[in-house]
Design a protein around this nucleic acid. Structure first.
Length: 667
DNA sequence: GGTTAATCAGGATT
DNA sequence: CAATCCTGATTAAC
C-alpha cells in the first residue's frame, strides 16, 4: 500500500529567510531555484513492461543527463521598443512613467523580501473526509480550506512513490469532479421536463467540491510544478484547473499570490492561461508574448489602457525574482463538448516586459515568456502532431509504420502499428480479433428472447435500465456514468435502434489507436485521439477457455489472460462518496467470480499490448450485450482520466490470486 | 454565432 | 483583525 506522504517528508525548497537587505535578494533568488529531476514519463507513470510480451529488459537511454538545469534568465532587452505615432507615444510614455514609479517603489520594498518566508506546514492535502450527510455550512469548513493560503512553496525532488501517490490524488479529484458534473447534467435533463434549468454544471461541480474542501493544493501556493500533474495533461473545463490547483482563478488569466498575503507586500505570479482571449498575444510555442489582463469591455475588446496592478504587477515581480510560471493553453478542439480544451504546457520564465500600444490603440502590458528547457514536449505540440497524424500519418511521420491498420479493416477505426526503435514487427504476425469468442454453450444463453420494447429509443421505463438497477450506465455521449459489477447493454432481442444510448461498447472503438514499440515497456498502446475520461476504449479480446482447457494450455507453455485478476478499478469510477457520504458503490447486477481464461496466443487485439501500471489510466468494466450468461461477461476497457494523444495507456492487471499465485498475465 | 447566466479571488472598507 | 461588500476577471451551453 502506498505510504501517505506529508509535506514535511517532501524536500521543499523554500524561499529563504535570509537577511533583509537588497543585497540579500540577489542571493536569495538563486536559492529558490527549483531542483527538478529530469522528467521521465516511464518513472512517473510507473509503467512496467507488459508481461505477456516480455522483451529484453528495457534498455533505457542512460538518462539524457542533467537535472532540469534552469537556464539563466536571458538578459532582458534593455531598451523598450517604441515605434509608434505621437499619440501612441503619449500612451506609451505614460505607461513607462507608471512603470518606473512602481519600479522605484519596489526598489525600497525589496528589502523586505528576505522575510518572505515560506515554510513547511501541516499536511499538503486539502482533502478532508466528510463523515455525515449534514449540509456543510460555511461555518463547518475551516477557514484554511475555504481560503487560499499565502505560503509560497516549491516542491522538488519527489520520490517515485510520492509522484505516484500525488498522481492518484489528482486522478481521484478529477474523477469526483467528472462524476459530480455528469450527475448535475443528468439532473438538469430531468429538470428541463419541468421547465427548470440548472446551468453550468461545470461551475456547480467545482463549487460543491470546494464546499467539501476537495480542492487540491490550497493550503500552499505552489511555485512551479504541481505534484501529480504532468505536462500534457488535458482538461475539458476551466474549473478543473482550480480543482487540481494548477490555476486558482475562475476567470482571470493570471494567478498570483496577492500583495497583502505576501510578507514583503509584493504580489507574485504563479500561473497563466493563454486562451487567445487577448488580441495582442503572440504565441510561438517556446516563446509567448503574453498580454497583461484588464482594459477590456464585456465583449472582450480592449477599451482602456491596462494598469500595472494586480496580476500585471505580479508578473513583473515574478520576472524580477526569476520565479517561473506554469503555462496552460486553451485550445480549440472539436470533439470536446464545449469545443475547447486546456492543456498544461509546463514552466516558463518571464524574461522581459514592456508597455506597448495594442491593436486597438490602448496601452497594454506585454510579457515575454520563454519555456524552461529540458521539460517534456509541450502538450499543445503533441496535440498538434496528433492532429496531423490523424489526417496524414505518413506526412507527419514518414518512417516507422509497420502497418496503417493492423486490424486489417476488422476494427471500426484503423489501428496503427509503429516502431521507430528497432526491427521488431511481432504484433503483425497475429490474427486480429476484435471481439472475444465464447464457447458455443455460452452463446446459447442469448436465445431466451429477453429485451426491451423501446422502439423509439430507450427511456425511463426501459427493461434494460431495470436490469442495470433502474438506471442507464452511460450518458448521452457514451460516457460511463459509474462503474458497476456488470453492465447490461441492449442486445439483439431489444427493439431499440442501433444508436440507442444503451449500446456503447458494441458499436466498437471510436478512437484511433497505435501499438508502438517502446524502450520501457516493449510494446505499448497509445491513442492518436484525445480520450475523454469515462469513454469506451476497446474490448480486451481473446478466445475463452474453461479452466480445464486452460490447464492444458498452461502445460504447453502458452500465455493466458485471467479476467478474474484485473484489479477492480471500476469501483473508483463514479464514486462520489466524498460529496454525498451516503453514496454506496453499486453491488448490482452482481457477477460470480470469473472462472475462465482467455487465450491470446494466436488471436488478439490492441488491448493485449497495454502495459501494467499501479496508477493506471484505463480500467476494466464487465459488460453483457449479446448473451445473458453472467458467468461470461465481456471485458470492456474505459478511460479513467482524460488521456492526451500519444500518452501510453495502462491497466492495473492486478496482483496474485489463489488460483496460480502469479501475476495476472504472467506466463 | 450572439446571448445568457453562472464563478471565485483579491482589494478595500467597515 | 474579521466580516462584508465590491470589482474584475471568462466560459459553457443554448
Amino acid at each position: 500500500m502506498d505510504s501517505v506522504v506529508s509535506f514535511q517528508d517532501l524536500n521543499l525548497q523554500l524561499g529563504s529567510s535570509g537577511a533583509g537587505s537588497a543585497a540579500a535578494v540577489a542571493t536569495i533568488v538563486p536559492k529558490i531555484e527549483p531542483k527538478l529531476e529530469p522528467f521521465d514519463e516511464f518513472a512517473l507513470t510507473g509503467l512496467k513492461a507488459s508481461p505477456l510480451f516480455s522483451n529484453p529488459s528495457p534498455t533505457r537511454d542512460s538518462d539524457s543527463g542533467s537535472g532540469l538545469g534552469l537556464p539563466a534568465v536571458t538578459e532582458p532587452a534593455g531598451a523598450k521598443r517604441s515605434s509608434h505615432s505621437s499619440e501612441e507615444a503619449n500612451v506609451y510614455s505614460e505607461f513607462n512613467r507608471i512603470s518606473e514609479m512602481f519600479r522605484a517603489t519596489f526598489a525600497e520594498k525589496m528589502q523586505g523580501f528576505g522575510d518572505v518566508d515560506v515554510v513547511e506546514g501541516p499536511d499538503s492535502r486539502a482533502i478532508v473526509p466528510v463523515s455525515d450527510e449534514a449540509q456543510v455550512s460555511s461555518a463547518v469548513i475551516s477557514k484554511s480550506i475555504r481560503q487560499r493560503s499565502s505560503e509560497l512553496v516549491r516542491v522538488t525532488d519527489l520520490k517515485l512513490e510520492d509522484q505516484r501517490y500525488f498522481r492518484d490524488i489528482v486522478r481521484k479529484a478529477r474523477m469526483v469532479y467528472d462524476s459530480i458534473r455528469v450527475l448535475l447534467v443528468l439532473e438538469d435533463e430531468k429538470n428541463q421536463e419541468f421547465g427548470h434549468f440548472r446551468n453550468r454544471a461545470d461551475l456547480k461541480a467545482a463549487q460543491l467540491m470546494r464546499m467539501r474542501g476537495l480542492w487540491l493544493n490550497r493550503d500552499k501556493r505552489i511555485v512551479g510544478a504541481i505534484p501529480g500533474l504532468f505536462i500534457g495533461d488535458v482538461f475539458f473545463y476551466r474549473m478543473e484547473l482550480c480543482v487540481v490547483g494548477l490555476h486558482g482563478q475562475a476567470q482571470a488569466g493570471i494567478d498570483y499570490l496577492p500583495a497583502n498575503h505576501s510578507s514583503n507586500g509584493e504580489p507574485i505570479a504563479t500561473s497563466v492561461i493563454v486562451s487567445g482571449g487577448y488580441e495582442d498575444d503572440e504565441d510561438s510555442g517556446d516563446v509567448i508574448i503574453y498580454t497583461g489582463h484588464g482594459g477590456q469591455n464585456k465583449f472582450s475588446k480592449q477599451c482602456v489602457s491596462q494598469k500595472l496592478e494586480s496580476g500585471n504587477l505580479a508578473m513583473e515581480r515574478s520576472m524580477t525574482y526569476g520565479i517561473e510560471v506554469r503555462v496552460i493553453r486553451g485550445f480549440k478542439y472539436e470533439g470536446s463538448a464545449s469545443g475547447k480544451v486546456y492543456v498544461y504546457d509546463g514552466l516558463y520564465r518571464i524574461v522581459d516586459y514592456w508597455c506597448d500600444v495594442g491593436k486597438s490603440g490602448y496601452g497594454v502590458f506585454k510579457y515575454k515568456l520563454v519555456r524552461i528547457e529540458n521539460q517534456p514536449e509541450m502538450g499543445s505540440s503533441v496535440l498538434r502532431l496528433a492532429q496531423n497524424l490523424r489526417t496524414r500519418p505518413l506526412v507527419a511521420r514518414p518512417t516507422g509504420y509497420i502497418s496503417l491498420d493492423m486490424s486489417r479493416n476488422k476494427e471500426s477505426v484503423p489501428v496503427f502499428l509503429y516502431n521507430d526503435i528497432d526491427t521488431d514487427q511481432e504484433p503483425a504476425y497475429y490474427d486480429y480479433l476484435v471481439k472475444t469468442i465464447f464457447p458455443s454453450h455460452v452463446q446459447q444463453h442469448a436465445g431466451n428472447g429477453t429485451g426491451c420494447e423501446c422502439v423509439d429509443g430507450c427511456g425511463a421505463n426501459c427493461f434494460c435500465a431495470m436490469r442495470n438497477g433502474g438506471e442507464f450506465a452511460y450518458d448521452h455521449n457514451g460516457i460511463l456514468l459509474r462503474g458497476k459489477p456488470l453492465v447490461f447493454e441492449c442486445g439483439p432481442h431489444c427493439r431499440c435502434p442501433p444508436k440507442c444510448r444503451n449500446r456503447v461498447t458494441q458499436r466498437g472503438v471510436r478512437y484511433k489507436f497505435e501499438v508502438f514499440r517502446s524502450r520501457e515497456t516493449g510494446w505499448g498502446v497509445r491513442s492518436v485521439d484525445l480520450i475523454q475520461a469515462g469513454s469506451f476504449i476497446c474490448e480486451y479480446s481473446g478466445v475463452v477457455l474453461t479452466m480445464e482447457q486452460a490447464q492444458i494450455f498452461k502445460m504447453n507453455g502458452d500465455s493466458l489472460v485471467y479476467p478474474s485478476r484485473f484489479a477492480q478499478r471500476w469501483a473508483e469510477w463514479g464514486d462520489v462518496s466524498q460529496i454525498y457520504p451516503n453514496y454506496v458503490c453499486p453491488t448490482y447486477p452482481s457477477v460470480p467470480p470469473l472462472g475462465f481464461a482467455m487465450d491470446v496466443s494466436k488471436m488478439r487485439n490492441v488491448a493485449c499490448y497495454m502495459s501494467h501500471s499501479s496508477s493506471p489510466n484505463v480500467f476494466v468494466q464487465l459488460v453483457l450485450y449479446d448473451h445473458n450468461n453472467v458467468c461470461f461477461p465481456r471485458l470492456m476497457l474505459f478511460a479513467m482520466e482524460n488521456i492526451p494523444p500519444l500518452r501510453e495507456l495502462s491497466i492495473d492487471y492486478g496482483v496474485a490470486d489463489e488460483w496460480t499465485g502469479k501475476l495476472a498475465i504472467c506466463n
